[in-house]
Design a binder for these strands. Structure first.
Lengths: 212, 212
DNA sequence: TCGAACTGCCTAACATAGTTAGGAGAATGC
DNA sequence: GCATTCTCCTAACTATGTTAGGCAGTTCGA
């Protein structure tokens, strides 16, 4: 009986169309920004009439949702790849995490905007799409814990700082390298203040900045 | 000759209508969010037909622009009032600045969203409306300088951190008091790392936190 | 004071969004 | 082979910001 095989083929074709629509949406997001995405343009790109898109997505927001899930899943994978193996020096690890986060956002500002879903009016990710974002955050807490940062507040502060730095970079100096300089200094400050324990780092004590 | 007096009266009436429109816009922004503002609703509130609004504003974005300018002017005044006189203890001053910033944003999230103009698709403030924002930033640099923070990077990091903390608060814990706790810890970290000099603070030495 | 110019509002209409209704034709399944 | 399902279509609807053009009251100069 070929029923199951056929069913598979159908599902695949359906999935392919879905991906085609999402790819068109991504291309458009990168050209004109996330808010500039238009069902008509997406439809034209994939060779459909706008209402036909509704055979694949419930609404425009559902398309955003799929893109949101895409992004966080990709980011999760990206982080996993970069953090294996984890650097042994805490300060290096912290910088690496920041660098990954930064590269990921600067490489594709549209994606970054989408991942900060609050910047898109009317869009709220579904619980399912939100899950990878939560997992990444948990992974962060875990990683910091392994490096000796057990105070949750310190982690939250670090995340805030990182988000703020990236926003400032994208807003004031897109294409420049302001982020690197600020990150360098911020990491030092954080380390000096005990945010990053010196546990495995012998060199850190010799590097401590003199107080005026 | 009454010409000039008449001209004044006309200008006043015109300004009053303009204010009425902006008030309606603000009310609506607080009810349904900045993105939810609708010319039709504004017009209904002030008792006009939508196209009539164009006698007072060039476009919807022009209304946003006026609201943006309003906000930053109010903030500038707010800051000036709170920082006069400037606390003598640097750490207190830093916390006060953060507190003012936070109160101002939490008291009126719609206003905060507007001040972060990048969160509103298609809106870019005019140079004139942007000026107060620049002045406030300069004022911040100046104030920090008077407190002994001469490294511009340290100031930028502080601003990033503050923005990140507020965003995190508004996103994860609206109505809660997460911000206070994180701010406390962040200020300490910053001070310990030398971001806040102990220069003018004699009491500071007695208050210095013990390092574990 | 009279007529011209201006001002502030109006109605009608338009362009562009997202979205719904309903159907036609091909693919699929018993 | 026939009923069902699926995918796409056209037509139309609603809501948005915006433009065109006009009309009545007000202001202002000769």
């Amino acid at each position: 009986m070929l029923g199951s095989s056929n069913r598979n083929r159908i599902a695949e074709r359906r999935e392919a169309t879905r991906r085609e629509i999402l790819d068109a949406a991504w291309r458009q997001a990168r050209e004109v920004g996330v808010a500039g995405i238009t069902l008509r343009d997406i439809a034209r790109t994939v060779g459909m009439q706008p209402p036909s898109l509704y055979s694949h997505f419930d609404s425009k927001l559902a398309i955003y949702d799929a893109m949101y899930a895409d992004s966080w899943l990709a980011y999760e994978e990206h982080v996993s790849r970069e953090l294996d193996p984890l650097p042994t020096h805490p300060r290096d690890a912290i910088r690496l995490i920041a660098r990954v986060f930064f590269d990921f956002s600067v490489a594709d500002p549209a994606r970054y905007q989408l991942m900060n879903h609050r910047t898109i009016p009317g869009f709220e990710p579904t619980a399912e799409s939100y899950a990878p974002a939560v997992r990444v955050l948990e992974r962060g807490v875990e990683t910091f814990g392994a490096l000796g940062v057990t105070d949750r507040a310190d982690f939250d502060i670090w995340v805030s700082l990182l988000g703020g730095l990236i926003d400032q970079q994208l807003a004031n100096d897109p294409g420049g390298d302001r982020f690197s300089r600020l990150l360098e200094r911020a990491t030092d400050m954080w380390a000096d203040a005990g945010g990053i324990p010196h546990r495995t780092a012998r060199r850190a004590s010799t590097k401590r900045r003199a107080r005026p």
